[in-house]
C-alpha cells in the first residue's frame, strides 16, 4: 500500500533519513518507535508531501508521489490523514470550524452533511457539546482529541499518528490507544503510529519498527520483537518489563 525506497532527507549537512526502506501493508497497524530526533516526524512529513525527500521514492497505492506538486498532492492528502504531534488547532476558529475546515476544502459537502460529519467525528473521540468552544478553552488532552477528530472527519484510508499520547495522562493515553485500535478495526484504515510507548505497541501493533539515527534497526511482530538481540530494542523492552514487574 505504502512503500519507501531508499529515502534520504538532509537538513544542510545533517542527514536525517539515511536511505530508508519500508513497506506498509493494507489494513495493518504499524508502530514506529525510536528515540527523539531520529527522524520519525520527518518520515511522516515526507509521506504527506510537507517536505520533499532529497533522494529515494515514495509509493502510495501504485503512484510515485515524491515529485508531486502541491496540487497533485491534494488527493493524497485526502487519502492519508496525519494527526500532528502538537494539537495544531486553529486558535481563531471554533472546534466545529476546525473540524469542518478540511471537509470544506476537500469535499463539496452541504452544510447539513458537514454538521453530521463533525458530530460523528467528535463522537468517535468521545467528545460532545463542545462545537462552539475555542481551542484555548479546552484542556491539552481534549485539544489532542479534537485534532484527531479533525483528521478522521475526512475518513482517510491511511491514518498517521505522530506521538498521539506523548504528554498525556495515563487515562487519556489508554483512551487514545483504544481509539486507534477501534478506528483501525472499524473504519478498516491502515495506521502508522509514531510512539515512545512500547507497552502500547506490544498490545495493539501488527508490526513494530524501531528506528535509530535515521535508519530502521529492527522490524517485526510484537512476538518477534520481544526476542530481539538489538541493544536499543532491549532497552525499550526492559523499561516496559521492569515497570510491569514492579506493579
Amino acid at each position: 500500500m505504502i512503500q519507501f525506497k531508499g529515502l534520504v532527507k538532509k537538513f544542510g549537512d545533517r542527514i536525517v533519513l539515511k536511505g530508508l526502506n519500508l513497506s506498509v501493508q493494507k489494513g495493518e497497524i504499524l508502530f514506529i518507535l525510536g528515540t527523539s530526533g531520529t527522524g520519525k516526524s520527518v518520515l511522516l512529513k515526507n509521506l504527506m508531501g510537507l517536505m520533499k525527500p532529497d533522494a529515494g521514492q515514495i509509493w502510495i497505492e501504485g503512484e510515485e508521489v515524491s515529485s508531486f506538486s502541491e496540487e497533485q498532492y491534494l488527493p493524497i492528502r485526502r487519502k492519508c490523514g496525519l494527526v500532528f504531534q502538537q494539537p495544531a488547532l486553529f486558535d481563531s476558529l471554533t472546534v466545529f470550524e476546525n473540524i469542518a475546515f478540511g471537509i470544506r476544502r476537500h469535499t463539496k459537502d452541504s452544510e447539513q452533511e458537514i454538521q453530521k460529519k463533525v458530530t460523528k467525528a467528535l463522537g468517535l473521540v468521545h467528545l460532545k457539546n463542545i462545537e462552539n468552544k475555542f481551542p484555548s478553552q479546552l484542556s491539552y488532552g481534549m485539544q489532542k482529541r479534537v485534532s484527531l477528530a479533525r483528521t478522521i472527519a475526512l475518513e482517510p484510508k491511511v491514518l498517521l499518528f505522530d506521538e498521539p499520547t506523548t504528554g498525556l495522562d495515563p487515562v487519556t493515553t489508554s483512551a487514545i490507544n483504544q481509539l486507534i485500535l477501534e478506528l483501525s478495526r472499524n473504519l478498516k484504515t491502515t495506521s502508522i503510529v509514531v510512539s515512545h510507548d512500547m507497552r502500547c505497541a506490544l498490545d495493539i501493533a501488527d508490526r513494530i519498527i524501531v528506528m535509530d539515527q535515521g535508519s530502521i534497526i529492527e522490524i517485526g511482530t510484537p512476538e518477534e520483537l520481544k526476542k530481539s538481540q538489538v541493544s536499543l530494542v532491549k532497552d525499550f523492552l526492559s523499561e516496559v518489563l521492569e515497570k510491569e514487574a514492579r506493579q
Partner: peptide, 14 residues
C-alpha cells in the same frame, strides 16, 4: 512552529 501551517496544507488548503 505549532504545525498549524502544515495542518492547513494537510486539510487541503493553501
Amino acid at each position: 512552529v505549532t504545525e498549524q501551517i502544515d495542518a492547513i496544507r494537510c486539510l487541503g488548503a493553501d
